[in-house]
Amino acid sequence: MDQIESYRALALQVTCHAVNTLSDPVAVRERMRATIERLHAQIRASISFIGSDVRLVVLPEYFLTGFPLGESIAVWSEKAAIDPDGPEYAALGQIARDQQIFLSGNCYERDPHFPGLYFQVSFVIDPTGQVVLRYRRLNSMFAPTPHDLWERFLEIYGPESVFPVASTAIGRLACIASEEILFPEVARCLVMRGAEVLIHSSSEVSSPELTQKNIAKMARALENLAYLVSANSAGIEGIAIPFASVDGGSKIVDYTGRVLVEAGQGESMAAYAEIDLAALRRYRRRPGMNNLLSRQRFELYASSYASTSFYPPNTLLSGNPERRHFLRMQQETIDRLAQMGVI
């Protein structure tokens, strides 16, 4: 595998065409197909404009479908989730092959081991069209996660599946899903496994002011000495929420926490920048106060994590709940932490 130490990454800011109002399964799949065709054209045109050294293109969170608005978990799984070997991945793989890029995004995906449920999955497809990384979101407010099925998930997939890192021609890639940028442990565990480029598919509020997530993006890059490529939606079409509630601010952050480029609002290819892996690797190997990775003393914290439980695992092993299950579990966790004197 020939290594590419310098290339352009593109956080492609595109509109999400939601499927919530569609009741016909054929119409839902047709909308997904149309979305992928539109993305193929946009990616081809963007690379033609930016240059042939674009090697990584990142798409926003749930770019194929939007997010559930009132649909039950079982209904959304049937309606909007895709299969690991389904036609949608095949079509996305065709984009990666045609453009000779690594293509990353985030979608809802069914799992044959957990019928009636779905995971929110961030993926990376390589230039041969193969999925080389599949990260299942670990922290979610209203969706099933591997942690909710922890014992069974580990039995099936093993611990190495929890924080996957892909060694590729464009560096060691890892994915962080949406709101998980606010959970520093996710990025840290990925970097413990060698991640150099953190890929962040999101659909979030943008603002001229620093948002919580934008503060977190800079912090995750700085504290882990990693590039971060974050793609946001350019609005969501087809739902009652105002279109531009999640629109703008796709960005690329370097390993010092500096924002290299940031898009405004609307569909945009403006968020592209160089990923200089050689410079990153030199920085990580240089002694000094700024080399935060080499100064980490994880033993200091290990016993605190090992002996403490806040939100409990395995809460979905006994059945397929409605979404109110997650609010109930959060309230029970808050009550328990209050009784313990933690909060």
Rank of each mutant, 00 (worst) to 15 (best):
K217Y: 13
V28T: 02
V58T: 08
Y62V: 03
R328L: 10
I252E: 03
Q94G: 06
V57I: 07
E30L: 09
N139W: 05
S23Q: 12
S104N: 08
Y108V: 00
M269H: 09
P25M: 08
I125K: 08
A231R: 11
V132F: 02
A41I: 02
S122V: 00
S23R: 12
A96Y: 10
A240L: 13
L210F: 14
Q339E: 15
P112H: 11
R324P: 00
P184C: 11
K213N: 12
G194H: 09
T308C: 10
A91S: 13
G248V: 00
C175Y: 01
Q13C: 03
I170N: 12
F119M: 06
V57H: 05
N224H: 07
R328G: 03
N214H: 15
T145N: 06
A244H: 13
I4S: 01
S250C: 02
G70L: 05
A226C: 15
N106Q: 13
Y272H: 15
E88D: 14
V191Y: 13
N214T: 11
I176R: 12
T145S: 13
L22D: 06
A273H: 06
I95N: 04
V162I: 15
M340Q: 15
S178G: 07
R258V: 04
G116R: 12
F49K: 10
L300K: 14
N106G: 11
R44V: 03
I275E: 03
Q120D: 10
Q3L: 13
L228S: 05
Y301I: 00
F183M: 14
V132W: 04
S230Y: 09
P208G: 11
Q130P: 02
H147E: 05
F326L: 02
I50F: 06
E151C: 01
G264R: 05
V342G: 00
G288N: 06
I334T: 08
V165M: 13
K213W: 15
V14W: 02
S318D: 15
I252A: 02
W76T: 00
V253L: 09
K79T: 00
A166P: 11
S201K: 11
A226H: 06
R282Q: 12
A278Y: 07
R284A: 04
M329T: 08
K213I: 06
C107V: 14
R336E: 10
F298V: 01
R281W: 07
W150A: 02
Y89L: 15
G288L: 07
I47E: 09
G158N: 12
P321K: 06
I334C: 04
G238Y: 09
Y283Q: 08
S23L: 11
S309W: 11
R31V: 03
P115R: 13
I241V: 12
F243L: 11
R110W: 05
R297W: 09
R136Q: 11
F142P: 00
A271D: 07
L277S: 08
N106K: 05
Y135W: 10
D335P: 01
Q3P: 01
R31S: 14
P164M: 10
Y135I: 01
M269C: 08
S304C: 06
E71F: 04
L64A: 02
L210V: 13
Y311V: 08
